[in-house]
Structures are given as structure tokens and as C-alpha cells.
Simulated scan of single mutants.
Amino acid sequence: MTRYDFDKPVDRRGTACVQWDGVAERFGVDGLLPFTISDMDFPSAPPVLDALRERLAHGVFGYTDWRVSGFREAICGWYATRYDTELDPEQIVYGPSVLNQLSQLLRMWTEPGDGVAVHTPTYDGFRKAVTGLGRELRGVPLGDATALERELARPDTRILILCSPHNPTGRVWTEPELAETARLAAAHHVAVISDEIHADFVHDGHRHLPWTRFAPDRGRWALITSASKAFNFPSLNGSYGIIGDPGERAAFIRRMETGEGLASPSVLSLTAHIAAYQEGAPWLDAARGYVAGNLGLLAQRLNGAFPALRWTPPQAGYLAWIDLRALGVSDEALQRELIERERVAMMPGAVYGADGFVRFNVGCPRGKAEAGAEALVRALTRLV
């Protein structure tokens, strides 16, 4: 078996990196050790890097047509082998990012003032997209089926944004939950946009089920995602969607290629996606296992110091969503301790609408994860 060296640190400073170079802008202090933005400190999969080098060596970077690149075929192959799901390649669309696709679909399927339901806590990118377009964000507590039906039943609720797996909690939806969500959306004529960008990082013991398994043959629904999260190349700017209804799909493509002027995608993104999906599975499985080790280390350290937390690692992803309410620690006090004394940066739960939580990115070498875990425990110990 190939051995991947996830322990080796990579210096990301000075690379225009949001997590490292942008820490002062977000936290007001420079030089913090960051565990923040949801990208990883690992180089991407070797097959991805090899494919990018080969494409760069060609030297010509003209306009690109994603339909003839092998992009759709790679996606279909990935879903068949990874999720036992057959896709119709004609249903696949391209977009520069998942959030860009979301914004386009919100414009297509809603009007200003319409309601958009999301589960809470909520990824802040959803909030910015919805409210920035003048739509009303309607929160549904995660796992509250009654609240979900109540919000979907409101006559001006037009869309449910389903984050699957859920960010920031890392929850993987079960088949009965997804089937019930589909039933409620259909009953109340609410479109579903399923953001599945964290799907490829589901941990052992859990299973991701694509929304295509639950979506109707016609009507307004979309699955939006990218290989960039799991294979760590978000700055290459590329994503894809699956839109089942032919009319809605044609309208989306027309909007992207004419009104938005996005007919030619990034060739490096196409190259990275194809390589990741065709050859990157062994690296991804190794990365998931390594991150699971980081999460296990964090659980051991937190629960050893504070048994009342009973914290368990997420079912998906490399973002540890930690409920600190049992300790009675305020977000403001914890942030002061982390920033001023421990010199580390972690995302406060308030960013996602949940006071009393912290989000800790462990997609990093073990030494860095250990340093973050120790800093968090020390800060909490002083406050408790």
C-alpha cells in the first residue's frame, strides 16, 4: 500500500492563503496558529498534482469546453464506484463554485422576500448568499422534523438548502431522514438544493446517499458539489451540479453561459477533477483515516480533561464541531484566551448561529492538531 506522508508540515504562509495569511483580518491579530477555514494543510493527491503538471507542461490555455473534456464521464464513474449510484451525464452542469451555483439557483427559483429554509447551525456561506440576495433565511433546528415541516408549509417558502453531510456539525443524513425530507418538500412544493461538497469525506461506519436517489423525475431540485473539498484544491475554482429537470437544467446553463459569461471553465479545475475521480481514491481513503486519527486524539484530550463534554467526532469531514455549553464558558472569554494567550485561531460557534460552540479544523499534520488540542484544553481549564 502506498504510504502518504500527512505528518510533513507544508509552510503555507505567503501564498495568499486565507487560513494562514488572512488570520489577522478575521481575528485582529497576526501570527496565530490557525484551525479555521475549511481547507486542509495537506498537498492534494499525487495523481492530481501529476495531472496538473502535465497539463501545465502543454503550455496552451485557451478557452475550454467542459462537455468534451471527460469531466462528466469521470463524475459518473466516481458515483458508480463510490456511491453505487448511476448518473445520467446529460444531467450534469458546470459552475465556478458551489456557492456560485447556489446563488444562480436562488435567483432562478425565488424572488426577493421569499423564504429559504436551512438547518441550524448554518454554514455562514449560505446565510450570506440568501440574505445578500434579499431572500429570507428561515432556520430549522437540526433534527427537528416538526420545525422542518412547519417551515416548508409556509406559503412563501420556496427552497430548502440541504447540507449533506451537514456543515458545521458533520452529521450524515440517514436514508429515512432523506426520504422524509423529500416527501415534505414534494408535499409543499418546495425546491431542494442539496450541497454535498463534504460527501467524499464521510468516515467509516457511515454512508452518504446522494440526493439524486430521492429527487423526483421532474421539478425543481439540484445537487451541487465539487471534488475540491475532499482533494483540497478549492482555489482552482470549479464545481458541478446535477439538475434533473431538462427545462431547469437548460435555464441554468443558459444563465451561466450568457448572463454570467461563464461559458469557458478553468481547465486546471477540469484536469484536477478528472484525475481525482479516476485515480485519487487511495489517497482520499488514507487522508480520511489520518484525519480520523486527529479527531480521535482530540476526543481523547477533551474528554480526558472535561468528562462532562462527552464529545464524539463528526460523522464526516475534518471540522470538529465542539459543544462547550456544559462548561458554562462564554464565546467571548474563550476567544480571548485562545487568541491572546494561546495564540491560536478557531472559529466561534456564533459564526454559524450557535453560541457555546467552537469549530476546530483538524485537516492538518498530527503535530499541529496536537498543538491545537492542547491550546484549547489549556484555555478551557483556565476559564472553568
Rank of each mutant, 00 (worst) to 15 (best):
R13V: 03
F71S: 05
D39Y: 07
R82E: 14
G259M: 00
H119R: 05
H273M: 13
T212A: 13
T36M: 03
S97H: 06
T258H: 06
F357S: 02
S69R: 14
R138M: 13
A230T: 10
S235V: 06
R325V: 13
Q315D: 06
G22C: 07
A369D: 06
G244Q: 02
D200N: 10
E374R: 14
V116G: 01
A129L: 08
T258Q: 06
N237C: 09
E73L: 05
L319G: 10
F214W: 11
S103Y: 00
T181I: 15
T131N: 09
S264H: 13
L297A: 11
V344S: 08
H198C: 04
G238V: 03
P265W: 05
D355W: 05
T271L: 10
D11I: 09
C364W: 03
N232Y: 05
V23A: 13
C364M: 14
V29A: 15
G296R: 07
Y83G: 00
T381N: 02
G353M: 12
A45T: 07
L209F: 13
P9K: 00
G205M: 08
E25Y: 10
A316V: 02
E151T: 08
A375Y: 13
E175Y: 07
N294F: 06
Q278R: 15
L319F: 09
E175K: 14
T381A: 14
R171L: 10
P141L: 04
A354H: 12
G139W: 08
K8H: 10
A24S: 14
V130I: 15
L270W: 05
V358R: 11
G62Q: 07
F42S: 01
L142S: 01
G328P: 09
R359S: 09
